[in-house]
Nucleic acid binder design. Sequence first.
DNA 1: CGTGCGATCGTG
DNA 2: ACGATCGCACGA
Length: 204
Amino acid sequence: MEKLKREFFEGNTLNVAKELLGKILIHRIAGVELAGRIVEAEAYIGAVDKAAHSYNNRRTARTEIMFGPAGYAYIYLIYGMYYCMNVVTGKAGEASAVLIRALEPFYGMQQMAFRRYTKPLEELTKNQRIHLTNGPGKLCAALGIDKNCYGEDLLGERLFICREISEAPFEIETSKRINIDYAEEARDFLWRFYIKNNAYVSRK
DNA sequence: CGTGCGATCGTG
DNA sequence: ACGATCGCACGA
């Protein structure tokens, strides 16, 4: 496996969102590596996107990292309980990012089971196994991604993304983004991308 | 300083 | 369908 370089993240945000599909997200924590294959992602482009936290150049302590160079982690707390992970994209000053919405566990599934259900993997139902990482909050809980990862350089050694040497082919589906009904015209943007027929995609 | 709410999830 | 739960954005 080969770690993605800075240039990967500097590209057009919609392309980066699509190209992240099939890549392996890895978090090194507590002496182990937890990894999942990205199967769903959404683009957020501050300049034109009322759904983006950075819309209208809303530059605060929270969104600051989105205004910087590409290839850093933007982590935020949602509903007071769950963390979500984004990859900052584009040139410095552009305030765009890609939300990682779902993973297919790649390795470290045993630890993921403990982190999500405080149980060994063998005791999970088939349904619980799917629910380990099939949503943006769930995947962060499963991989131990939280506010400590805010601003993490994805070219570093703690949180990074790799390309498999030989990656299985897949088809990409496109749709409107999830839960942004407040975003006026932006709610209809087809900026969600996911791997067709993958069991870990958060919604049909 | 006070207040309303959210790029979600689990339960019913 | 609904409540949990709290940091933060924004207005006063």
